[in-house]
């Protein structure tokens, strides 16, 4: 209890928090916006997912309680669901592998280049997402250097990368990499380098130090980065659309085409809802570990 008293210098650092009406006033407009345009749409999404079609008129639906929309949608589209999780899972694992050395380098070795390197991690987001993805068409083209290289090693089952699942996963890995690097960096930056020195001093090899000290201390960043990469990758459909073939379509493509092209609102809503439910399970598992205060 004594440790919580603001009577000692260092602990007085805790921001003085006031309880007053001003707090609610500051929250009200923004939170109302989020409530109306983020939270409530999930209610309408749920209601839409239960609607029944009007016989004879395509694109017209009436409010109903057609729970069967869910099993119907899942029966039809479970392969795309599965594919989404597999692609996103592989992409997340690859991103972790690629991001970790960079994040580690920025946190511990970059010195005065640290700020610049962080800027360079964020900078790609300033170029159009669509165009960057489209650029992979050029990079992975059939007659391109990369495809030729792998073909020479006979590593490609279809003799090409573009329009295969490999291209889709490569695109996903690339696009969401900064979301992996930044949380990893944030976690590693908090690790006192003296802990690593201490571990080396206590006869731990570099590998043991990493396994027993660095890695466990960076776990919050690993978990956050994994979530922030996996979730948008699962829902993405741009990579699948631009880099994959029709066999590589992910759940995002299905939702998009059902919603906008086929106007099959109930099916698209049901699929969105199931996707969101899976993601909420992930998020709440994370919150149980970390609490809500660290989220924002």
């Amino acid at each position: 209890m004594v440790a919580l008293l603001p009577s000692t210098g260092a602990k007085a650092q805790v921001s003085p928090q006031k309880r007053s009406r001003t707090g609610y006033f500051l929250l009200l407009p923004g939170m109302t916006w989020l409530a109306i345009f983020f939270a409530i749409p999930f209610v309408t999404l749920f209601l839409t997912s239960l609607q029944a079609p009007v016989a004879g008129e395509s694109g017209q639906y009436v409010p109903a309680f057609q729970v069967s929309n869910y099993p119907d949608a899942l029966m039809e589209y479970w392969p795309q669901f599965l594919k989404s999780f597999i692609y996103a899972g592989i992409a997340t694992a690859l991103a972790l592998l690629i991001a970790y050395p960079l994040a580690y380098f920025i946190a511990f070795k970059a010195g005065r280049w640290r700020a610049l390197m962080l800027v360079l991690v964020i900078a790609p987001s300033f170029a159009s997402f669509l165009l960057r993805t489209y650029a992979w068409k050029t990079i992975l083209a059939d007659e391109g250097f990369i495809t030729s290289f792998f073909n020479a090693l006979h590593l490609l089952p279809d003799d090409r990368i573009l329009n295969t699942s490999i291209a889709v996963i490569a695109g996903l890995t690339y696009n969401f990499l900064p979301f992996m690097i930044l949380p990893l960096y944030a976690a590693l930056e908090k690790v006192d380098p003296r802990l690593i020195e201490a571990s080396n001093d206590l006869y731990a090899s570099a590998f043991t130090t990493f396994r027993k000290v660095t890695w466990p201390l960076s776990l919050p960043g690993v978990v956050a980065g994994t979530l922030l990469t996996f979730i948008p990758a699962t829902g993405d459909y741009i990579n699948a659309e631009l880099l994959g073939s029709t066999q590589d379509r992910m759940i995002g493509n299905i939702i998009q085409t059902n919603f906008i092209e086929f106007r099959d609102y109930p099916t698209a809503s049901a699929l969105s809802f199931v996707l969101m439910a899976v993601i909420l399970v992930l998020v709440f598992t994370y919150i149980r570990r970390a609490g809500t205060e660290d989220l924002v």
Partner: peptide, 8 residues
């Protein structure tokens, strides 16, 4: 000592 109430 720290926590004795002097800063408060």
């Amino acid at each position: 000592a720290s926590g004795c109430g002097k800063t408060t």
